[in-house]
Design a protein around this nucleic acid. Structure first.
Lengths: 257, 257
DNA sequence: CGCCAGGTTTGATCAGGATCAATGCCGCAG
DNA sequence: CTGCGGCATTGATCCTGATCAAACCTGGCG
C-alpha cells in the first residue's frame, strides 16, 4: 500500500459575494456625543465632560451601507471604531472562499481590539450602520492619559475572550440543533442587555450569515428553524424575525455548560 | 406529518476523566524572579527592579501535577497566574461530558484574562507545571499603579483574541486534515517563538487532548497522523514527538487564510 | 399586473468523520 | 519474565450534516 494520496478537499460552498466597495464610506464632521444614543453602552460611558470633549475632538462619524467593508483582515490597522447604531459582522476567510463569521457587533460595541499591526478579521456592515472612528495612534495616546478608559477596554477584551471561548465550544462540540438553539438564546441576551423587548427578535443577518457564524450551511440552518417551528418552540413571522414560544425547551436543546 | 420529534443527541464521546484533585497543590514561598527562566517571555519583562520587587512580594509559587486542576470554569476568580514552566490546557465542558479545549498555554503565558467574576474556562496541567500566582485583587491594584503592565496585558488580550478567532475559523470551516496540519504548524510556531529547535516537536498532550482541541475524535486525529506519515510529510519517532519532513506540503494542506 | 432577482425552504443523495470494536504497543509492578 | 493498564492505531459501519437540485416566496420595478 505504497500510495493512497488523494488530497481531499473542502466542502463548504462559496456564498455569493455581493458588490463590496472597500469603504471610504460617507463621512461627516463629528456628531455631538451628547446626542449619542449608544453612549451608555460604550466605553465612553462615565467619562467626565472634559474627557468626553477630548474623545469627541478625535472622532469622525462614518456611515456604512449594507455589505460595505469597514476594513479587511490583513489591512494595516489605522483606526478603531465604536458602533453607534446598526450591525457589523466580523469574519475570516480562506483562499477558496470558505468564510467564518467570528462575531456580530451592535450599538455600543467596540471594534479594533482583535488587532495588532494589521486587522485579524474583516468587518462588514450588515445593515445601515453608523460608527464613530478614531485614528489608532490618537486613540492609543488617549489610552495612556486616561487609565479608566484602558481599564474599561481591558474589561471589554475579557468579555470578548469569554464570548470567543463560548463560540469555540459551540463550533467544536455542539450539534447543528444545539448551535441554532444557542444562537437564538444569545440573540435574546443581546437584545435584552440593551433593554429592548425580547420577542420577537429581529435578526439583522441572512441565513447565509447565520450559517457562516455557526459553521453550518444555509440549508441546515433553514431545516433547523423549520424543525423548531414544527416543534412549536418558535415561530417565524418573517424570515428575519423569530418569536420564541417556549424558552425552556429551547434552553434544553442548547444543552449548554 | 404532525409529529417528527426525535430529540437527536450528541455524538462525541466522553473521554475518561482521570483522578483530578481540585488543587490546593503544593505551595512554597516566593521564588526569586531573578532566576525565573520564563521572565523574558512574560508580562514581567521590562519591569524596573522596584516594580519587580513589588510584584514578587505578591507572588506565590505553586506546583501542579499532570491532571491537576488549577481552577474550574465557574469558580469565583480569586487568582491570576503566570506560567513559569510546564503546560496547561484551558477547556470548557458540557453537562454530558463533551469537552472542548480552547487553548494550550506554556511558559510565559498569562492565565486569568478570560475572566470576569468567575473563570470562563477550566485550567488543568498537562505535565508537571510551575506557576506564579497572584491574588486577583492585589493584581488589580498593581495594574492601577503600573500603566505599562496594563498596556502589556491589553496587548496579551489582543493576541489571545486573534488566536481565538483563528481557532474559530479552524473549528467552523476546516476539514480534519486541515485542522491537524494547522495544529502542527501552530506547534512549530509556538516552539520557535520560544527560540527552541523546531524539529522534532514535542507534544505535551495526548491524542485525546489534541482531539478535544480540534473538535475531532481520537480516532480521526490518529488516522490523520498516520496519513501524513504515509505521505512522508511527517514522521513519528514516538507518539508524543512529531518530525516535520516537508513543511511546505504541510502548509499547503492547512490551506489557511 | 406580471416578471425577475435574492433569499428561503424543501427534497434526494452523498461523504466526512463519528461510533463501535479489536488489536497493538509500550512502561511499569510484581 | 509476565501480566496489566493506558494510550494509540486500525478496521467496519453508521449517521449527521454537506452537496446538488428544484421549488417557493416576497418585494421591487417595468
Amino acid at each position: 500500500m505504497a500510495d493512497d494520496r488523494d488530497e481531499r478537499q473542502p466542502m463548504a460552498e462559496i456564498h455569493a459575494l455581493p458588490i463590496r466597495k472597500n469603504a471610504t464610506p460617507v463621512q461627516k464632521h463629528p456628531d455631538p456625543c451628547e446626542t449619542c444614543t449608544a453612549r451608555s453602552l460604550t466605553i465612553c460611558a462615565g467619562l467626565d465632560s472634559e474627557e468626553q470633549a477630548r474623545m469627541s475632538a478625535l472622532a469622525t462619524t462614518v456611515w456604512v451601507q449594507p455589505h460595505q467593508v469597514l476594513f479587511q483582515e490583513g489591512d494595516t490597522a489605522d483606526h478603531v471604531y465604536n458602533i453607534t447604531c446598526g450591525s457589523v459582522s466580523l469574519s475570516k476567510s480562506m483562499s477558496d472562499g470558505r468564510r467564518q463569521i467570528t462575531g456580530f457587533l451592535g450599538p455600543g460595541d467596540f471594534l479594533g481590539l482583535n488587532t495588532r499591526d494589521t486587522y485579524s478579521v474583516s468587518a462588514e456592515a450588515l445593515v445601515d450602520t453608523k460608527v464613530c472612528r478614531f485614528s489608532r495612534s490618537a486613540f492609543r495616546k488617549l489610552l495612556s492619559d486616561m487609565p479608566d478608559l484602558e481599564h474599561r477596554l481591558l474589561a471589554v477584551a475579557e468579555t470578548e475572550l469569554a464570548t470567543a471561548q463560548e463560540q469555540i465550544l459551540l463550533l467544536g462540540r455542539k450539534t447543528a440543533m444545539e448551535r441554532i438553539a444557542s444562537f437564538l438564546l444569545l440573540q435574546v441576551n443581546r437584545v435584552t442587555a440593551r433593554g429592548l423587548p425580547p420577542n420577537p427578535i429581529a435578526l439583522p443577518m441572512t441565513r447565509a450569515e447565520v450559517a457562516d457564524y455557526l459553521g453550518l450551511t444555509i440549508e441546515t440552518v433553514s431545516r433547523c428553524f423549520t424543525k423548531l417551528r414544527k416543534l412549536d418552540i418558535i415561530s417565524l413571522p418573517a424570515s428575519d424575525r423569530v418569536l420564541i414560544k417556549q424558552t425552556e425547551r429551547l434552553k434544553a436543546l442548547s444543552e449548554s455548560t
